Each structure stands twice: as structure tokens, then as C-alpha cells.
Computed example of a mutant assay.
Amino acid sequence: MTDRPDILCIGAVLWDIIGRTPAHMRVGSDVPGRIVRLPGGVAMNIAMTLVRYAMSPALLTVVGRDAEGDELLARAGAMGLETAHVYRSDDLPTDRYMAIEGGNGLIAAVADAHSLERAGARILAPLEDGRLGTAATPWDGPVALDGNLTEALLHEIARSPLFAAADLRVAPASPGKAERLLALLGHPGATLYVNLEEAGLLCHESFDGAEDAARALVARGAARALVTNGGAMAAEATPERCLTAQPPEVLVTRVTGAGDTFMAAHIASEREGRDPDAALARALKAAADYVSGDPAS
């Protein structure tokens, strides 16, 4: 791939190790199921979904110079992702994520993104050395940014001239890392994609629904906020308006990656010129198809 990418996906690119079972689980459960190993991470999940919408994403991340890293980048390249700008580390291993999902949802997860955190600003070098931009001529396209980056690096990105012209689309990696996104409140080009729990953590209050949460995020300085709430009403708010939409009702068979699918489908829909209501509806449909296990999603 030699052409300018359509979008930059910055953040976690790793291996997902996920155990799934239809059984309802509790602490200490030991049940039969399936264990899969798949390319994952917020940035990777978004990029993989964008390819299905005929977009050409480039990854900015760190991957170790180990067998797992070689295999991961080979898989990414085979899917049509641009990997030429990935920082390869001699001393940091390829990151991993492990989750257990039951019939009653996500039971537990552990994200080992320490290499991404330690690599820090080194993953952003292509944005300042001329490959994708410079401080004088910054990248002016969309950027999908994930909250696996450190709080310090997110603060740096919020102030950096390298991102001054970017259309920033931002997602927390998990509720446990949601407050890192406080660094980007007030950035005029940032759109936040969060679930209801994450919105509450960012606003330091509880919300009954997505509409109140989205409005509160805008009141706290977000240029735009999209809030999902599982199978309940979702919302998109700006200082001028607030839209709501109901997701399709589906049987949930998987949850890891659903938020990333929603975000990618929304970005792609807007890049195609769909109006706000249509973009929100299409993103909710894509996420519903994903959690239902629809092989096309």
C-alpha cells in the first residue's frame, strides 16, 4: 500500500486470547467452552472493521520483534492494513489481552498493554518526520485514538501541533482507563465514543441514560460525544443538538470488540457522507450484528 491512508489508527495492536461459553458464570466457575486467539486491541479492531467499509487504515503502534509480533503484522497486512509505520521494538514484547465471556456477558479481562505504554511517543514519529506529516504541515485527516495510551501521552497529543488539524475520534480501552480521556476534553477536533459507565467515570456522576450522559460530556468540554448503553437507547451530542437511537434487539454471543465496531462503522458512515441520524443508526446496526455473531460483521 503506497497511497496516503484514509485514517490513522493509533493505539493497541495485540493478540486477543478469549474464552467464551454460553453458560452463565460467576467467580470460580469452571465450564466448557471455546478459547480463541485473534488479532485485537482497540486500534486493531477499529482498523479491521474500517477495511470492511472499503477504507485504507494505517496502524501507529508498537509490536515486538518476536514471533508473535511477526505473525500479528503478517495477519494485519493480509487483511489490507498499512503496517509500514509500526514501531518495532527489540526489547519490548508484543502485547496481549485475555478475557472470559459467559452467557451473562464479560466476566473478567486483563489487558497487558505495557509495551504500548513504555513505547510512548515513539509510535508517533511518522507524524513529525515527514512520512505522515510534520509540525508545520500536520496530518489533516481522521485519527482513531485509543485510551491504552498513557495519560501523559494523551495530554501531549491534546496540545501537540501534530494533531492540531486532525479529526480525532477517541475511545477508552476500558472503563478502568476511561478517565485518561479527560486530557482530550476541550480539544476542538475530538469526538468521544464511550459507553454509559465510561461517561459516568469521565463526568464523576451516574446517569440513567445515554442522552443525559452525552449532554453532560459536552457540558464538560467535549466537542462531540457518542454514548452507547448496551441494548438501550444510544445518543450523540454536540453543543447544538442531541440525537438518540435504539439499537436492534439481538441475541448476544460475544462482547469484546463491540464498541470498536460501533466506532469504526460510525466513522466510515460519516466519511461516506451519511447524515448524523443515518450514521448513528448504521453504527448501532453494525455493533448489534457483531455481538450477535453475524459472520458478515
Results as ranks from 00 to 15, higher is better:
M1N: 02
D3G: 06
D3S: 14
R4A: 15
C9M: 04
I10Y: 04
G11W: 04
G11Q: 07
G11C: 07
W15M: 11
G19Q: 08
A23H: 14
A23N: 08
H24V: 13
H24A: 14
R26P: 00
S29R: 11
R34Y: 00
I35P: 00
V36F: 03
R37G: 10
L38I: 10
G40C: 11
G41L: 08
M44P: 00
N45I: 05
A47L: 08
L50D: 06
A54T: 02
A54W: 00
M55H: 12
L59H: 10
T61L: 02
T61M: 01
E71R: 15
A74H: 10
A74K: 11
R75N: 09
A78I: 00
A78M: 06
M79L: 14
G80K: 09
G80L: 10
E82D: 15
H85F: 13
H85R: 02
H85W: 14
R88D: 04
S89N: 08
D90T: 05
L92N: 07
R96Q: 13
A109M: 07
A109T: 07
A109H: 11
V110Q: 10
H114K: 12
E117I: 11
E117W: 01
G120V: 03
R122T: 14
R122D: 15
I123D: 10
I123L: 15
L124G: 07
P126E: 02
P126Y: 01
G130V: 05
L132R: 12
A135V: 08
T137F: 01
T137A: 14
W139T: 06
W139S: 10
D140Q: 14
L145H: 07
N148A: 04
T150V: 06
A152Y: 00
A152R: 13
I157L: 11
R159C: 11
F163W: 12
D167F: 02
V170R: 01
A171I: 03
S174K: 05
S174T: 15
P175I: 11
K177M: 05
L181M: 15
L185Y: 03
G186K: 05
G186N: 09
T191G: 04
E198P: 01
G200P: 06
G200E: 04
G200V: 09
L202W: 06
L202H: 08
C203N: 07
D208Y: 00
G209P: 04
A213V: 03
A213Y: 03
L217R: 02
R224K: 12
R224S: 15
A225W: 02
A225L: 08
M233C: 10
A237R: 04
R241Q: 13
R241T: 14
A245Q: 11
P247V: 07
V250M: 12
V250T: 14
T253F: 01
R254H: 08
D260N: 14
F262R: 02
F262A: 06
R271H: 11
G273T: 12
R274I: 00
D277T: 13
D277N: 05
A283V: 03
K285F: 03
A286I: 10
A287P: 00
D289Q: 10
Y290S: 01
V291K: 01
S292N: 00
S292R: 05
D294P: 03
A296L: 12
